[in-house]
Amino acid sequence: MYEIRFHGRGGQGGRMAAEAYALAAFLEGSYAVSFPFFGAERRGAPVRAFTRVDDKKIRIKTQVYEPDYVVVLDETLIETEDVLEGLKEDGMVIINTAKKPEEVRLSKPVKCATVDATSIALEILGRPITNTAILGAIAKATGRVSIDSIEKAIIEKFGARLGKEAGEKNAKAARVAYEKTLVGVAQGGKAFVPRKKWLPTVEEMPIGGATPAMETDAGLVGIGSFIENKTGDWRTFMPIIDKEKCIGCKFCWFYCPEGCISMEDGKASVDYDYCKGCGICANECPVNAIEMKREVRT
């Protein structure tokens, strides 16, 4: 049996990738299971998904703690957490990034494959949804399933949902990614302060879970955690407000699901610390004063 852990963000399709991979393995005669684990159920929040493949029925129902492969759909995640946690000694990490494997820095040197799945997706699909492109990279990097099976699985799974043409486009994204994937070794040495978790005992747990801004040795919790967790780093697109065009109608303010638009001198203004780049504000603005711009991170 081998196990894969997918790291992505809600809305990026990590779960679909994990399922499509399982289907590809199944098409080759293996037994495969796949399941997601959601954190906060929101677009942009870190999400994990898991796939197990074996030649016999898989009975274990736990999450995957010691994967053979780690797949990272969102590059920003390698900055904030040690994605290698629990990875087997000879395991491999597959990352969506424009960098070469040798340019990637992780907690330790490790077999690494990279592919710029975001650019491939934008070019072929017109959207930064990388979950199909990354599957091509997995096929190339691991050699566990053929790219043909990956394509078949994508056409079956995505075609059924999005139509034949979309299915084929996604399969093409996987094929292109397969061809462009680079395999090498990532650098180690990146230090992660292990994130302390607040794990109160029954005694320590506030009654009924009612939490004020509480200082713990794992940082602020309860209402305070919102102050510390700057969710703005989940963004791919950034809303830019044209103050000239803005008529101050407050539609964006009303519709923003994160409450991060405020009105300053009668014009809308975005709190980028918490804006997740969902684009709802741009969609609602009656005078098209908001433009969603691709955000490039260095």
Partner: peptide
Amino acid sequence: NPMAIGTFTP
């Protein structure tokens, strides 16, 4: 004195 009550809890 803001407080979180009954929020999303993992």
